[in-house]
């Protein structure tokens, strides 16, 4: 008799595990569920927005100036290619580094090696 019981017990245990697995899987599945975004209501949205936008505009201006400054540095195309070839880095990185070194290729190489 006990022999007969054992497999039945095992089975129920397996079922339990399966059930557990299933609920785990369901929980995981929920992570990717689609959710409608909730709308905010009340509060002074206008003022808040204004404060943020002002700050943001200042920041954009600052960045444009920085980029302008960097772009003003004259760089040699051959130097860029030398850096790319010797250090196996992408063009954008080579250019930026060369500009930051004010176009001095030896300095740019030294900077890149030293980090």
């Amino acid at each position: 008799m006990p022999q007969k019981e054992a497999p039945a017990d095992e089975e129920s245990q397996q079922k339990k595990i399966a059930k557990h697995d299933a609920s785990n899987a369901a929980d995981l599945e929920k992570v990717t569920d689609f959710h409608e975004e909730q709308e905010l209501s009340g509060g002074d949205l206008e003022t808040a927005l204004k404060a943020i936008t002002e700050k943001r505009n200042k920041e954009v201006q600052k960045r444009v100036e920085h980029l302008k400054k960097l772009a003003a540095v004259k760089i040699n195309k051959e130097d860029v290619e030398l850096i790319m070839r010797e250090l196996e880095i992408p063009r954008l990185k080579a250019e930026t580094c060369l500009r930051q070194a004010y176009g001095d290729v030896v300095q740019a190489l030294l900077d890149l090696i030293d980090n």
């Binding site: 905010l40 009340g42 509060g43 002074d44 808040a48 404060a51 700050k55």
Partner: peptide, 15 residues
């Protein structure tokens, strides 16, 4: 600074 500002303003609206 900007990150904190955004959360501050948001908390004000949410209230």
């Amino acid at each position: 600074e900007m990150a904190v500002k955004l959360i501050d303003e948001f908390l004000k609206i949410q209230n």
